[in-house]
Amino acid sequence: MKILIYILPFIIGASCFIGLSIMGSTINSDGILVEPFFFLIPVGYIFLIIGAFML
């Protein structure tokens, strides 16, 4: 049970990056990149850093 607590931030961080790649992004006709789920990038990194500190 204790190992699950240490692995959980890595799983959440990885799922943020996987979800970001699945949702994808688009480019407008003006050439502007539109990423509706951009918030998943910093959230994923935060969870990976938390997991590294917990180890």
Rank of each mutant, 00 (worst) to 15 (best):
M1Q: 02
M1R: 13
M1P: 05
K2T: 08
K2N: 02
K2C: 04
I3M: 13
I3E: 10
I3H: 11
I3D: 12
L4C: 14
L4N: 14
Y6T: 11
Y6Q: 12
I7H: 15
I7D: 08
I7W: 11
L8F: 15
P9W: 10
P9M: 13
F10M: 09
F10C: 04
F10E: 03
I11K: 14
I11E: 09
I11Q: 12
I11T: 14
I12D: 04
I12E: 04
G13M: 07
G13I: 06
G13K: 01
A14M: 11
A14C: 09
A14D: 04
A14P: 01
A14Y: 02
A14H: 05
A14E: 09
S15C: 15
S15F: 13
S15M: 11
C16V: 12
C16H: 09
C16P: 01
F17R: 02
F17M: 10
F17I: 02
F17T: 00
I18C: 14
I18R: 04
I18A: 14
G19T: 15
L20T: 01
L20Y: 10
L20K: 03
S21H: 08
S21G: 14
S21T: 11
I22E: 06
I22H: 13
M23V: 15
G24R: 13
G24C: 11
T26S: 15
I27E: 12
I27A: 06
I27P: 04
N28I: 01
N28T: 15
N28M: 05
S29E: 12
S29Q: 01
S29W: 10
D30K: 10
G31S: 08
G31K: 03
G31D: 08
G31I: 07
G31C: 11
I32L: 07
I32E: 05
I32A: 02
I32H: 04
L33D: 04
L33F: 10
L33H: 09
V34Q: 06
V34D: 06
E35H: 05
E35T: 12
E35A: 06
E35K: 09
P36C: 06
P36E: 09
P36R: 07
F37N: 05
F37Q: 06
F37I: 06
F37C: 01
F37R: 00
F38G: 04
L40C: 04
L40Q: 09
I41D: 04
I41A: 08
I41Y: 00
I41S: 00
P42R: 05
V43G: 03
V43L: 14
G44N: 06
I46D: 01
I46S: 05
I46R: 05
F47M: 05
L48G: 03
L48C: 11
I49A: 08
I49T: 08
I49P: 00
I49G: 05
I50D: 02
I50G: 03
I50H: 00
I50R: 02
I50V: 13
G51M: 08
A52R: 05
F53R: 02
F53P: 00
M54T: 03
M54Q: 02
M54S: 04
L55K: 07
L55T: 08
